[in-house]
Design a binder for these strands. Structure first.
Lengths: 338, 338
DNA sequence: CATATTCTCGCAACCGTTTTCGTAAATAAA
DNA sequence: TTTATTTACGAAAACGGTTGCGAGAATATG
């Protein structure tokens, strides 16, 4: 067991611990000769500094927290990749926490983040979250917070999102242009800005085209377990939608399965477009038209902002609202009838 | 900013820091009355203990590291979920590290894990890894290590895998039973036991059925970027395989795309089966036959073992080889011609 | 040669908690 | 009442680094 710490090195070289510490940190106070000796011994004995001792003294943990609703979702997986890629270059460590879409969990997690364990927090809030109290507390403790994708609107801090309103509009117009007259929007939350904004865009498009109110359905698929049933019910209803916009990736599979089960043809009977970063989109039956979010880039950008906030306390995160646009990738699932 | 620590509480209540510390930890040495006062003040001032100070003193970090090749993969995402679900109940924190399938990265990560930052390590090794040196060092430092899915065979420690050999056999037999005579196995590594074992099963099945050597292709798709091209080349070759076994999830999309592009019909021209936990498998074109790995359960089991190893130093991990079987889910992509 | 500077290094406090040990007061036993 | 015992707490030393400051030696400056 390597109990080798600074004290051991000091002993061995007949130097003081402070000298060792400074030598290892390449301080100008130490002669090159001594530095060399210290470094050499350190590598020879496989000295590895204890990060917690250092954190305690320096009040910096070189660690960030990433709080997200779930990880079994391509969007979040890719975002983590983006975050990690930046953290790596900065020498930061990444703690992952999952809220499982529950506000109570999120609260507990964020409380812990006040402990000094992390220098900053990247968060995509749960679909239940309606209050920014916990995040305010973090900010009061000088812990920078950056939202990515799912933000809490009342909080003043940096956020990296995609052009949700516009994409809602684009998605709706896409359906309308392909002949839909009764499009429905499948949301997962009544409070998440990403959903609200996309819905606003959706509504605006229908408004403009003059689709009657009765034919503008917005459906809330809040519960994961009942989603499939709920979608089947919708597809069997009298005024069955002729177009569906899936607000998030996890709605896609139940929609497709329901259509297959009910012998409803995509795109002839109902056209489907989804907000998703699914890499199987092109090989689905039929290939799925997506609004593809730049998940990796969002993660990278959010992390970059967070580190700016961490490293320069003068940097004002509150005005940083970055929008990275998504792109519509048209495939078979929304092909117009011919 | 809450600079409230034990010292502040002590000051406020005119007690010593040791008394506060003991009261908070509900020590028998402290009177109920004092405990109550301390607790009350602690919650009132929103006292949150500094984990690093505690870690330093107790030499326990209540943190584990999860080292994996990548996170944009359903298998690993689900595994993380499983790990996290156990860590949560145990009050542990989870650091995520990505090797990006590079041994050099993995090495750096594992070196850092010797610092005392973590109490244990869960790892699924990179496809490049051929040496167990780094992991030996961890063990020498009394840091328990548990493998999940991708193991390094020379290391004596707990591992949670699935029945790879058997599944290789099952997958191959499945193809053979559906009429394939020139099945190919698409691997991603020449050293990973998961691949080697699956290949062994594959070979055994072909052997038994008497498929000639020349018709037992094992193809190594090591490079992510060239995978699509490589697969196309294979599908255009003279002795084109009539069945494909994708050893991991990420091979699926390129295979399907290549077949579509080349107008090769699945399952009539080539049958496809994949080791995957893809939840879009049933809605692919055609629905994909999978060997579905119990990713979530593997994560849970591995974490459970790791915590046993962490919490009781007497617990001998070295003999814990847990195998959680995968299941074959048959779908259209391997339907027999009729 | 005297004084000022620069170069190296050690001392000791500190970060926030935990834990051992000692001890005064309160209670029980004799 | 005296002697054990228990109860409730405090002092201080850890844990492993970091850092401000002081000081001796070496060098430069006048």
């Amino acid at each position: 067991m390597s109990k080798v710490n600074i004290k051991v090195l000091a002993e061995e070289l007949q130097l003081s611990v402070s000298t060792i510490s400074k030598a290892l940190r390449d301080s100008y106070e130490i002669s090159d000769e001594t530095k060399k000796k210290v470094m050499e011994l350190a590598t020879r004995l496989n000295y590895i500094p204890n990060p917690y001792a250092s954190s305690l003294r320096k009040k910096k943990s070189k660690t960030i927290a990433v709080v997200l609703p779930e990880v079994a979702d391509n969007f979040f997986s890719l975002a983590i990749n983006g975050i990690q890629s930046i953290a790596e270059t900065k020498g930061y460590h990444v703690l992952i926490y999952l809220s499982h879409e529950k506000y109570a969990n999120e609260k507990t997690i964020l409380e812990d983040c006040q402990s000094g364990r992390v220098d900053g927090v990247l968060i995509s809030i749960s679909s239940e979250t309606k209050s920014g109290d916990q995040i305010h507390k973090l900010q009061a403790n000088n812990i920078p917070v950056v939202f990515f994708d799912r933000e809490e609107e009342s909080i003043e801090t940096a956020r990296v999102t995609t052009n949700d309103y516009e994409c809602g509009l684009i998605a709706a117009n896409h359906l309308l242009n392909r002949g839909c007259r009764r499009p429905a929007f499948l949301s997962i939350s009544e409070s998440l800005p990403i959903c609200l904004n996309r819905i606003e865009g959706f509504k605006a498009a229908l408004q403009e085209t003059g689709i009657p109110d009765a034919d503008r359905q917005i459906i809330y698929c809040t519960d994961n377990d009942s989603m499939y049933k709920q979608i089947k019910t919708i597809l069997q209803s009298d005024n069955r939608p002729d177009g569906l916009i899936a607000s998030v990736e996890k709605i896609v599979t139940p929609v497709y399965l329901a259509c297959h089960e009910l012998n409803i043809n995509i795109p002839n009977d109902v056209k489907v477009i989804a907000f998703a970063t699914l890499d199987t989109a092109p090989i689905l039956d039929p290939p799925l038209t997506t609004i593809t979010q730049p998940a990796f880039e969002i993660g990278k950008a959010a992390a970059t902002l967070l580190f700016k906030g961490i490293e320069k306390s003068t940097f004002d995160l509150s005005k940083e609202h970055m929008v990275i646009p998504s792109v519509l990738i048209e495939r078979e699932s929304t092909r117009a009838a011919n």
